[in-house]
């Protein structure tokens, strides 16, 4: 197992050995299998992965927002440093405890992909922001309203007083995503989980939202976990990146490590598969085959079924151990493990 020695005060979040399964009619599906990562104060961690990689499940578990049929393994731990300096293990909290409710929204906030469906259509935008404020801060209704209007203003919504009284359908997609960010940030969380926040937006709006998140991060000093499948977006926002595939982390490193010096065959293939403007007209390097179903997860390295550099008899037997290539760069692949032995 990987040894996380850096137990300094910097670490806001330490996820260790995270394993999450779902009980379904067809059997037990393991969505996340032994994932470790840490987030420091004020930094942005990017998690890249395709559908079914477990990137959403592993981060939603930080707020314990998983469906009832989910099982978090007993050996998993999610240690979170609260604003008062105490460290709690979120996996051990009771499902309906007060402490968990305080962490949700107050300490860790979440913004989703779908700005259309993440608001209730029957309440005004203002109502939904001030409700969140009232839940977490000891303020009167009027004060909550002022905080909400101030927040709408800060995320760049013009006429915040008028928007406050409007319903979600009256806002465009980009506006709604801004309002969503306003809700998430109104409690001044230490950690913001952004789950594909710009995926359904146009490029121009996406650029605006990314800029806004950057500004607000500098201003408020929160840490961000940014989940996306878009390598362009991640290259622009993240300080460090975890590459996930079928519930496992295959490579981690700083953004430069991953984008400019990828070592895992999956990361390399993924980067070659995206159309790039400096390679117009060239044939793309597709990754052959499909992502295996989580019900029939391959044994060993999850990527071996599609890997060009697969070593038969090794890759399909067991999961490779982490190999440290540098202080920041770690890869889970037998190609590198052998060299080190």
């Amino acid at each position: 197992m990987e040894n996380i020695k850096e137990k300094t005060d910097d670490n806001l979040l330490e996820v260790k050995n995270l394993k999450i399964s779902f009980k379904t009619d067809e059997g037990i599906i393991t969505a996340v299998d032994g994932v470790n990562f840490t987030v420091k104060h004020g930094e942005t961690l990017g998690i890249v992965g395709e559908s079914g990689s477990g990137k959403s499940v592993s981060t939603w578990s930080i707020m314990r927002l998983l469906p009832k049929n989910s099982i978090i393994d007993k050996k998993s731990s999610i240690r979170f440093r609260k604003k008062d300096g105490k460290v709690v293990d979120i996996t051990k909290l009771k499902a309906r405890s007060k402490e968990l409710r305080k962490i949700r929204g107050g300490e860790v906030a979440l913004i989703f992909q779908e700005p259309m469906s993440s608001f209730s259509p029957v309440y005004t935008i203002g109502n939904q922001i001030s409700e969140a404020v009232l839940q977490h801060r000891d303020v009167s209704k009027e004060e909550a309203q002022e905080i909400a209007i101030d927040m709408l203003d800060r995320v760049g919504i013009a006429n915040p007083r008028q928007r406050f009284k409007q319903y979600p359908f009256e806002l465009s997609g980009g506006m709604r995503q801004r309002a969503m960010i306003a809700v998430a940030l109104s409690m001044n969380p230490a950690l913001l989980i952004a789950d594909e926040p710009t995926t359904s937006l146009d490029v121009t709006i996406q650029a605006q939202i990314l800029e806004l998140m950057n500004e607000l991060q500098e201003e408020l000093g929160m840490a961000i976990i940014f989940i996306t499948h878009n390598l362009g977006v991640i290259a622009q926002v993240a300080d460090k990146i975890e590459v996930m595939y079928l519930g496992k982390i295959l490579e981690r490193g700083t953004t430069k490590d991953i984008i400019q010096n990828p070592q895992h065959p999956y990361t390399q293939a993924l980067l070659k598969a995206i159309p790039r403007l400096d390679h117009i007209g060239e044939r793309l390097n597709a990754i052959s085959g499909d992502i295996p179903s989580p019900l029939s997860r391959p044994t060993g390295c999850p990527f071996y079924t599609r890997c060009e550099k697969v070593i038969p008899g090794i890759c399909d037997v067991k999961m490779p151990n982490p190999t440290k290539l540098s202080d920041t760069h770690t890869v889970y692949c037998f190609l590198y493990e052998e060299k080190n032995v």
Binding site: V203, Q206, A207, Q208, G232, A235, Q236, T255, R276
Partner: peptide, 25 residues
Amino acid sequence: EALMSAIPEVNPDIEMAPVHLEGEI
């Protein structure tokens, strides 16, 4: 030009400088 400037470049060395478009479509 505005559309081009908003494409996130897969290269952390190139910083995005999106052209600001006022308002909505």
